[in-house]
């Protein structure tokens, strides 16, 4: 029973973190831009959502909008540093990320903000449902189900919007920019604008994801974004490896969500088997490094085979 509950928890966690993975996918795969600023914008979304609720008694749904916009603004800063000031992509992201660490401390005025006793988004929806006792389940179980439902609704909306947007003229230009900048400029498109737009979209989603995670886990922490890019990448590569055959764009996005859930299940399982929480980040890093090196390892193997012939 214990492991089943842990897996349910993992699925609901995977769903709230999946939006982060979708955001990372936009930059890493579509725009071909390793954007480190996501670590900062994830915590920024969380901090803002928590502070608006605790200090200003905002409705949790409204805080999500502000978190999304703040994340988008952070992405725009990275885009500005990279395109206008010609700072290399990876460094632009790192600068934004480091800057946001201080910003997040300023926003919260402390290193973390607890939502204990607050009517969080999950609590609000749970309040609309019958009591857990009446349903004959534990209170924590009901909370997990609600989190899953919320995650699913948001993911559905995000995938619909992304599917539509990347089918439009501007969306096509962003995809092409990640593919071949010279060609896109030759077709009369300002590639700088497309990059900024892509970063803005991506970090907006990541800010939203940070806010959702904060609402479901009940606190925001200034270091909650540490390793976010790696977690996003882990979800992407797991999704890609599992659903290799999927060629359609919506299918690819769904694969990432599945990847995010499976990543959380893997984590839950290895924790059950006694891996120390402190070692989780190292574990994740190794998983991602291995998954990303699959194409190289495969081609090397192929070369050896060819030589053997």
């Amino acid at each position: 029973m214990n492991i089943v509950m842990a897996i349910f928890g993992a699925v609901s966690q995977g769903l709230t973190w999946a939006i982060l993975a979708l955001g990372v996918y936009l930059t890493f795969r579509i725009l071909n831009f390793a954007d480190m600023s996501c670590e900062g914008s994830f915590a920024l979304g969380g901090s803002i959502s928590a502070v608006l609720m605790v200090n200003f008694q905002w409705n949790p749904f409204l805080t999500l909008i502000v978190s999304t916009l703040a994340g988008a603004a952070a992405g725009a800063v990275t885009g500005f540093l990279h395109t206008r000031l010609k700072i290399p992509a990876i460094l632009s992201g790192i600068l934004t990320m480091i800057g946001l660490y201080s910003v997040n401390l300023r926003v919260m005025g402390q290193a973390n903000t607890s939502l204990i006793g607050q009517n969080t988004l999950i609590m609000m929806i749970k309040g609309l449902l019958p009591e857990a006792k009446e349903l004959g389940i534990k209170d924590s179980t009901l909370q997990t189900w609600v989190t899953m439902g919320v995650g699913l609704v948001f993911i559905f909306a995000v995938i619909m919007i992304l599917y539509w947007f990347f089918g439009t003229e501007i969306g096509c230009c962003i995809r092409a920019t990640g593919n071949n900048e010279a060609m896109v400029r030759a077709q009369g498109v300002n590639t700088d604008k497309m990059k900024i737009l892509g970063l803005l979209f991506s970090n907006g989603l990541i800010g939203l994801s940070g806010a959702l995670v904060t609402q479901s886990q009940g606190y925001a922490d200034v270091s909650m974004g540490v390793g976010a890019i790696v977690i996003g990448l882990a979800s992407i590569v797991i999704g890609e490896v599992l659903l290799l055959r999927v060629k359609n764009f919506a299918g690819k996005l769904i694969a990432i969500v599945v990847g995010s859930i499976i990543y959380r299940i893997i984590i839950a399982v290895v924790l059950q088997f006694g891996l120390a929480t402190d070692d989780l980040k190292l574990f994740t890093a190794i998983v991602v490094a291995l998954a990303l090196s699959v194409p190289v390892l495969k081609s090397k193997k192929g070369m050896i085979r060819k030589e053997a012939r």
């Binding site: 947007f165 439009t168 501007i170 096509c172 230009c173 593919n179 060609m183 896109v184």
Partner: peptide, 27 residues
């Protein structure tokens, strides 16, 4: 001259809009 990861028709559609304003209509 072309975007390798995109379809032939998507490449043509990008070129077909050269010099025109691009918005939120279908690509």
């Amino acid at each position: 001259g072309t975007a390798a990861n995109m379809e032939i028709e998507e490449n043509l559609a990008l070129a077909y809009r050269r010099g025109q304003k691009r918005g939120l209509n279908w690509g």
